[in-house]
């Protein structure tokens, strides 16, 4: 057993929330550069250059890259030999969100109920997913998930015979997201499992490094094929027209029932803010 005190968890989450909003990860900055190299549209290039400048300004001035500093989605990979001391794990994570958003001048964007819409004031609670596995470490992965793109995320159950339809659905999601979701987009796709499993996979898929290959060669080929199709739509940066509609499509799969082919697509904007730490 290894003890990890909740104060260490809170500190880590606090830093991850602030850093995610100020410092776009290098994988995204490289994606901007690659896109600038091939984008034909002048308006599209101008958008991409502005977004690079925006990332630099956010980093140096410590102001958020986007005013929508997101809902915090937190994945925890918890080693089963870890013993959390000093309080509850979920409370520790939410305390980190609260401190990070207040001290970092990040926007409070969460309302306590979908209907009375009263702001909680500190961007809590986070959406927290915990996976327990072997080991004595705790990996904390934080994403500041923007609302505009989240609103364009979609879910559909396909029939097992309709794998082609499942692929078309993913490209269709890019089309319907359009400029509302702030392209160039990143798509997290969860295929298989059950209704909720595929949705969670679609979020987790977003943590893979942008531009890295899927470890499964068949899925890697599918990702590349779908990305090529998405970028043929012509939507372009901000929807002004262009070649760069999506930076990446990441797929995670899970075994599923003989009757099912669930597909969940999380739409993520170019403000793809993700950070992780291991305790």
């Amino acid at each position: 057993m290894r003890d990890i005190h909740t104060s260490a968890i809170t500190d880590a989450v606090k830093k991850l929330c602030m850093e995610a909003n100020w410092n776009l990860e290098p994988d995204m900055l490289r994606a901007f550069d690659r896109a600038l190299g091939r984008e034909r549209s002048a308006a599209g290039k101008q958008v991409l250059q502005t977004l690079k400048d925006n990332a630099e300004l956010a980093r140096t001035k410590r102001i958020p890259y986007c005013q929508d500093t997101g809902m915090v989605v937190c994945f925890v990979e918890l080693g089963q030999d870890v013993h959390v001391t000093g309080g509850g794990l979920y409370d520790a994570i939410n305390a980190g969100v609260s401190e990070g958003y207040k001290e970092g001048y990040l926007r409070a964007s969460i309302v306590r109920s979908p209907f009375d819409r009263v702001n909680t004031g500190d961007n809590t609670p986070a959406v927290i997913h915990v996976d327990v596995g072997p080991g004595a470490e705790m990996k904390i992965m934080v994403m500041a998930k923007g609302g505009g793109c989240e609103n364009r995320s979609k879910y559909k159950m396909h029939t097992p015979a309709d794998a082609a339809g499942a692929k078309d659905f993913i490209v269709e999601c890019v089309k319907t997201a359009g400029p509302d979701a702030c392209p160039p987009l990143v798509l997290g796709v969860g295929i298989g499992g059950t209704f909720e499993k595929s949705a969670i996979l679609s979020k987790k898929a977003l943590f893979r490094e942008i531009g890295s290959p899927n470890p499964d060669p068949a899925l890697d080929a599918m990702e590349k094929e779908l990305l090529e199709q998405a970028n043929r739509l012509g939507i372009g940066p901000q929807g002004y027209g262009g070649d760069t509609t999506a930076f990446a499509i990441h797929i995670l799969t899970y075994p599923c029932h003989i009757t099912s082919l669930p597909v969940a697509v999380t739409i993520e904007c170019h403000a793809h803010r993700h950070k992780e730490a291991t305790l």
């Binding site: 958008v47 977004l51 400048d53 925006n54 102001i63 890259y65 904007c269």
Partner: peptide
């Protein structure tokens, strides 16, 4: 239109 996500700039 303003550039979505360019909040800092």
């Amino acid at each position: 239109g303003a550039i979505g996500g360019a909040g800092a700039v």
